[in-house]
Design a protein around this nucleic acid. Structure first.
Length: 733
DNA sequence: AGCACGCCGACT
DNA sequence: GTCGGCGTGCTC
């Protein structure tokens, strides 16, 4: 009826219009007119004009708002690629409303492959068509032998197979020996074979694998949490779920923190399935990226191993999502669209009706709680596989075994390092602090080097000759003189960073091969190469920041020294204990997988601290559940309820709109409040709300100053603050 | 998000 | 006299 009355007011020949999500921060899709004869069902990937440029958008269903028909511009082109299916579209809508992001920007994450939307061009190929060449040289004979089967070859492929140069083939083409054919582009990766190398699971692992496999067999949404110490066989267990998924002819997605996407992982997959999975991460070459996108969309690629953004690939027939290292903070994206890929994986699984498997040696508190409450199936792997023993762990009480003057390494740890390298084994010294020293000050006037943009300490990087801000990226060359009093050569470095530890190590072990592994020393590629070199034994002493804790195994590493185990315990983060526990467990888990006797030594000034005690006691798992989960449950907002506070300094109305969207999206959520810059700090102090502050502002803008102004209830700045807490996605499904 | 327009400071 | 910094506004 409404439709009819609407038609009365429509022009005689109404232009057909379609809603299109464009890569722009608009709340709703834009409308475009559809030229006669063009068919664009929802999900179609299209090219549309937007202002002065052409952009890629997606035809949407619903959300269209009224707009003057004269403003409509036509859809220019529909790409010849599979449309985004309804579950993917609902996923994009869901993520947009949950993260309070414009849907167009979420959709853009699913279309991050510049030229992948048209089919890959056919590859030119050659086929033997019966004509013999007039002169049959030895080289030509070899080519004919290879091509006699009448199958199609690429020119370079045939030349390579026959062991001749391509010019031999060029000559034969001229004589009409070959006809030109067009071949479909070759698949990026070979299809993995679920039965390539049978698993070698035993006992509890078999039971665990059965649960995971059954979840895949059910072909429905479920969430399982696999937890077990490093080396307990978690990967092998979820490989069985992937094998089942492949047998069903469906696609599997493995999400990993970017740094854990190592060749070691890919090789392991290869050994089990006879082929590598397709990779997806920020460092991919454009061409490869496009191929992966396209072949995931067509279903050609069966398994993708990728960083968080792989969650937005448009799989043709998704059957399983794995989130490995699910506790890892790297799954959080904290720019543009803010999301946690672990949570969104659960949502995508729900909408696509596929099982999700979360995997970690140290599960996040959220996942622990969800499994305790029975929403996630718990799959616990209690021990290490075969003879891979856990290292024995000891605390070094730094009050009793202090380092020598000017040093940071206890004599106990130094002795252990010496013995380890004498045995031709490797030692890892872990310190979660990049650079040379976290603070520099002037010995004459006491001036402390502070970031001019955000007021955190500037960290000296001696290797690069710079002092840097680890908060905002500000950097300047290390000065010789104090900017305050002008005194030369009286600047003093305070506290250790990995570079300074390396200096100390080199002083004690001048003949050892020492290597610093830190994220600021080159890109992902270089880092991977260095990790592999270490795994092959090409270093004796490795000094690393937290990146060494992630995913990579060092078979020759029999000593792990934690230089400053207390770092991070007192930084005010409500998750400090959880983070410290996870990080130190992951690091100490790197050692002890060789069957050789291995050790972990934790330097600490707080040997009585419950986290330290738990890590060195064999009862860490129980402690983690009992103490950390219980404590942090009390600190964090009630699970199953969303507490989101939007503080808006410039537009109360905008904040109201966001809150309304939130309440609509999650009617069962409670505790949404809007707090102005004056109320927010009070609420924080009174402890009614716990939250992280996310301050949005341009680089170079004085965000710290704004927060200060906010805390002082000062003048309203033209910036907005959005405050969100980590919540549990399950309750919104 | 991108891109154009538009207005004030240091330089070929 | 211009180049270029970023503030503001607009895109179906």
């Amino acid at each position: 009826m409404k439709q009819d009355s609407h038609d009365l007011f429509s022009p005689a020949s109404p232009a057909r219009s379609v809603p299109v999500l464009v890569p722009m921060p608009a709340a709703t899709p834009y409308s475009y007119s559809l030229p006669d004869g063009m068919v664009a069902p929802p999900g179609s990937v299209v090219q549309v004009p937007l202002g002065p440029r052409k952009v890629v958008g997606v035809v949407w269903d619903g959300g269209e708002n009224a707009v003057d028909a004269r403003k409509l511009r036509p859809v220019e082109k529909i790409f010849d690629c599979p449309p985004l299916d309804p579950s993917m579209r609902r996923f994009i809508d869901w993520v947009a409303s949950y993260t309070l992001s414009p849907p167009g920007l979420v959709a853009r994450m699913a279309l991050r492959a510049p030229a992948a939307f048209d089919p890959e061009p056919m590859v030119e190929g050659l086929r033997f068509c019966g004509h013999e060449p007039d002169k049959l040289t030895p080289a030509r004979r070899k080519v004919l032998e290879m091509a006699a089967d009448g199958l199609s070859w690429t020119k370079s492929g045939l030349a390579h197979a026959a062991g001749v140069s391509t010019s031999v083939i060029d000559g034969m083409v001229k004589q009409g020996v070959f006809e030109q054919v067009f071949l479909p582009p070759p698949p990026l990766v070979a299809p993995p074979d679920p039965d390539y190398a049978p698993h070698r699971l035993a006992g509890r692992q078999m039971d665990a694998a059965e649960i995971a496999v059954d979840a895949v067999k059910a072909r429905d949404f479920s969430v399982a949490l696999i937890d077990g110490v490093t080396g307990s066989g978690k990967t092998e267990v979820y490989f069985e779920a992937i094998a089942e998924c492949l047998r069903q002819g469906r696609q599997a997605l493995i999400l990993l923190p970017e740094i854990a996407l190592t060749t070691a992982f890919l090789d392991r997959f290869h050994e089990r399935f006879g082929a590598k999975p397709a990779e997806w991460h920020s460092d991919l070459a454009t061409r490869t990226r496009e191929k992966v996108w396209r072949q995931a969309a067509t279903g050609e690629i069966r398994v993708v191993a990728g960083a968080r953004s792989a969650l937005f690939l448009p799989f043709e027939n998704l059957g399983l999502i794995i989130v490995d290292e699910e506790h890892d903070p790297a799954f959080k994206q904290e720019d543009r669209v803010f999301y946690n890929a672990r949570d969104m994986a659960v949502v995508r699984g729900r909408l696509a009706k596929v099982p999700v498997v979360l995997v970690s040696a140290t599960p996040s508190v959220e996942s622990q709680v969800n499994s305790q409450q029975g929403r996630y199936t718990r799959i616990h792997l209690p021990t290490r596989f075969a003879d891979a023993a856990m290292p024995d762990l000891h605390l070094i009480d730094m009050r009793r075994h202090p380092p020598e003057r000017g040093g940071f390494l206890s004599p106990v740890l130094l002795r252990a390092v010496g013995k380890t390298i004498e045995r031709q084994q490797q030692a890892l010294l872990f310190l979660n602090r990049r650079g040379y020293a976290p603070l520099t000050l002037c010995r004459v006037c006491g001036h402390r080097f502070q970031c001019p943009q955000c007021s955190s300490w500037l960290v000296e990087h001696r290797f690069r000759g710079q002092i840097q801000c680890h908060q905002c990226g500000y950097a300047e060359p290390t000065p010789q003189a104090c900017p305050e009093c002008g005194t030369l050569d009286h600047l003093v470095a305070c506290g250790p960073g990995v570079e300074r530890i390396a200096e100390e190590v080199e002083r004690h072990f001048p003949d050892a091969r020492t290597l610093v592994l830190s994220s600021d020393l080159g890109g992902v590629k270089r880092l991977r190469l260095e990790l592999e070199a270490v795994a092959r034994g090409e270093a004796d002493i490795v000094i690393g920041t937290q990146l060494v804790a992630k995913g990579h195994n060092f078979p020759l590493m029999t000593l792990v020294g934690i230089v400053d185990a207390d770092v991070g315990l007192a930084n005010g983060d409500p998750r400090a204990a959880e983070r410290t526990f996870q990080l130190l467990s992951q690091v100490t888990g790197r050692a002890g997988r060789t069957g050789l006797k291995s050790h972990g030594l934790l330097q600490t000034y707080q040997p009585q601290h419950p986290v330290m005690q738990a890590i060195v006691s064999g009862d860490a798992d129980a402690f983690y559940e009992r103490e950390i989960v219980e404590r942090e449950k009390a600190i964090l907002p009630p699970f199953g309820r969303l507490v989101s506070i939007i503080v808006s300094a410039d537009s109360r109305a905008e904040a109201e709109t966001h809150a309304r969207q939130l309440r609509q999206a999650a009617p069962q959520a409670s505790g949404i409040s809007i707090l102005g810059p004056a109320e927010a700090p009070l609420a924080m102090i009174r402890g009614r709300h716990r939250f992280r502050l996310l301050v949005h502002g341009r680089r170079g803008s004085d965000m710290q100053g704004f927060v200060r102004a906010m805390l002082d209830n000062g003048p309203k700045e033209r910036r907005s603050i959005q405050v969100q807490v980590d919540v549990d996605p399950q309750s919104f499904l």
